[in-house]
Amino acid sequence: MRVLITGAAGGVATLLRPRLRQAGRTLRLLDLAGPHADGDEVLNGSVTDPEVMAVACHDVDAVVHLGGHSRENSWAQTAEVNITGTQVVLDAARTAGVSRVILASSNHAVGFREVTEDLPADSTPRPDTFYGVSKAAIEALGSLYHSRFGMDVVCIRIGSCFERPPGVRGLATWLSPDDAGRLFEACLTFPSPGYRIIWGVSDNTRRIYSLAEAEALGYKSFDDAEKFADEITAAAPTGDAARYVGGPFTTTPLGIPN
């Protein structure tokens, strides 16, 4: 099995790569800055380049699409890289006969949803930033390519995937690296998932996100951000930052990198 990972030098991909390596699987890594990894196939290039993506998708069984701007940026940059880039990836995968694509969405696609227990993974978009709009758009593109061409597409609305939860909000949104490996593995191996939107979070004590949709694919979380709670000294969010899923991102200026 050959799996293409775009954005392979980025933070989430760097955590995932060692957790997705296994016997009988080849990882093909694509990034503008080629990641150095023994035993993997490495390509340099942009997800916005159809020729690069045609080469990258050749003889691939599945695509894990993590490439793109990972935080707020100008509308022009966000639209070009995150939205157009995802369409280029999906079309290259379709042309190459790749049957499964996993798209990295984000909690920011629903950032203006009010905080509530067990927020369904397929809640309709309420983005909090241009970045959030781009993630809502890639979910729509994934739906289109599934419905038109029969591709299996799983969109993962990732919370916060880091070694440790980033601040108080992260105690709810954290996806541990090990749980990320378990989640993406489930998405790669579950038989014929069709089109799905799932949350990418650990089973945190302060979790507000439904895990039912991810568990239906075979995901099981073993980690909880609460073990880091005593180490976090920052003040808890207040006002709209506490009211909405997107936290402080609901009040930051649009189009300014952060």
Rank of each mutant, 00 (worst) to 15 (best):
125 P>W: 06
244 Y>P: 05
137 A>H: 08
156 I>M: 01
249 F>L: 13
35 P>W: 12
203 D>T: 03
37 A>L: 10
40 D>Y: 11
246 G>H: 07
194 G>T: 02
218 G>Y: 09
124 T>G: 10
228 F>T: 01
165 P>K: 07
127 P>V: 02
97 G>F: 10
114 E>Y: 04
6 T>R: 02
206 R>I: 03
187 C>Y: 09
249 F>W: 15
159 G>M: 00
188 L>Y: 08
135 K>V: 03
40 D>T: 08
239 G>V: 07
249 F>C: 03
89 V>G: 02
107 N>Q: 13
109 A>H: 04
237 P>Q: 09
207 R>W: 04
116 T>C: 12
126 R>M: 12
18 P>G: 06
168 V>E: 10
84 T>N: 15
206 R>P: 01
49 D>Y: 03
114 E>D: 12
246 G>C: 06
231 E>R: 14
184 F>L: 14
146 H>K: 02
159 G>Q: 07
70 S>G: 13
116 T>N: 10
126 R>G: 02
139 E>G: 03
196 R>T: 00
41 E>S: 00
159 G>P: 02
119 L>M: 14
158 I>E: 10
233 T>D: 14
11 G>I: 07
39 G>A: 07
203 D>K: 13
205 T>N: 03
53 M>C: 08
103 L>D: 00
60 V>I: 15
164 R>V: 13
200 G>N: 02
188 L>W: 02
114 E>I: 07
86 T>A: 13
92 A>F: 11
49 D>V: 04
7 G>R: 04
85 G>L: 10
19 R>M: 09
176 S>P: 07
133 V>Y: 08
223 D>E: 15
2 R>T: 15
140 A>R: 12
114 E>H: 13
106 S>I: 00
224 D>E: 08
118 D>M: 03
167 G>S: 03
198 I>Q: 12
154 V>I: 15
113 R>V: 15
191 P>G: 01
40 D>E: 15
49 D>L: 06
244 Y>L: 10
58 H>P: 00
61 D>S: 13
105 S>Q: 03
238 T>H: 06
87 Q>D: 12
241 A>K: 02
59 D>C: 09
30 L>S: 00
117 E>V: 00
139 E>D: 15
26 T>N: 05
1 M>N: 06
182 R>H: 13
242 A>I: 07
183 L>P: 07
137 A>S: 14
196 R>I: 02
193 P>A: 06
141 L>G: 09
64 V>S: 00
28 R>K: 11
69 H>R: 12
37 A>R: 07
21 R>L: 11
167 G>I: 02
76 A>W: 00
214 A>H: 04
227 K>R: 15
89 V>H: 06
13 A>S: 14
70 S>C: 09
95 T>D: 11
62 A>W: 14
231 E>W: 00
249 F>M: 14
117 E>M: 09
30 L>V: 07
164 R>L: 07
239 G>D: 14
219 Y>V: 08
10 G>W: 05
138 I>D: 10
130 F>T: 01
137 A>K: 04
200 G>E: 02
100 R>K: 03
165 P>D: 05
46 S>P: 05
198 I>N: 08
85 G>P: 11
165 P>C: 01
117 E>G: 11
60 V>A: 01
181 G>S: 08
98 V>K: 05
105 S>Y: 02
198 I>T: 11
181 G>R: 06
102 I>F: 06
60 V>F: 09
123 S>H: 09
235 A>R: 12
228 F>E: 11
